[in-house]
């Protein structure tokens, strides 16, 4: 278990970075808006960053073991539900329920 000073420092660092990213642009907006490259990146980064984060979440898949089926089935559920209904909450809850059910019962590792 992580120690309290480390946890508190991690929270402080995270809060400072997040708040700075939200507050500072209101004062330094003009040059940012003018930058073509920043605008170019800003329209493309979200899609890419999310793709990278999905891969990051799945980085330790146990590909040689049967229990890999739990995250794969859950991922298929989330993607399928989302393409079908476009309801974020339904897609997230659906995939998570499939994952918890499989990982806790038949595919418990």
């Amino acid at each position: 278990m992580p120690e309290a000073p480390y946890l508190l420092a991690a929270v402080a660092v995270s809060a400072a970075v997040t708040w700075a990213l939200r507050a500072l642009p209101f004062t330094v907006l003009a040059p940012l808006r003018a930058s073509d490259t920043v605008r170019h990146l800003s329209t493309r980064m979200p899609a890419g960053v999310m793709v990278i984060l999905v891969v990051y979440c799945l980085r330790d898949l146990p590909v040689t073991e049967p229990r890999v089926l739990a995250p794969l089935a859950a991922l298929a559920t989330t993607v399928g539900l989302h393409l079908w209904r476009r309801d974020a909450l339904l897609s997230i809850v659906g995939g998570t329920v499939v994952h918890v059910t499989l990982a806790s019962t038949v595919l418990a590792g």
């Binding site: 999905v54 979440c57 859950a74 991922l75 897609s91 995939g95 998570t96 918890v100």
Partner: peptide
């Protein structure tokens, strides 16, 4: 297996 909520969230956002 609850941590899959995050994977699902990022999948939806992606």
């Amino acid at each position: 297996g609850l941590e899959f909520a995050l994977t699902a969230l990022f999948t939806v956002l992606a």
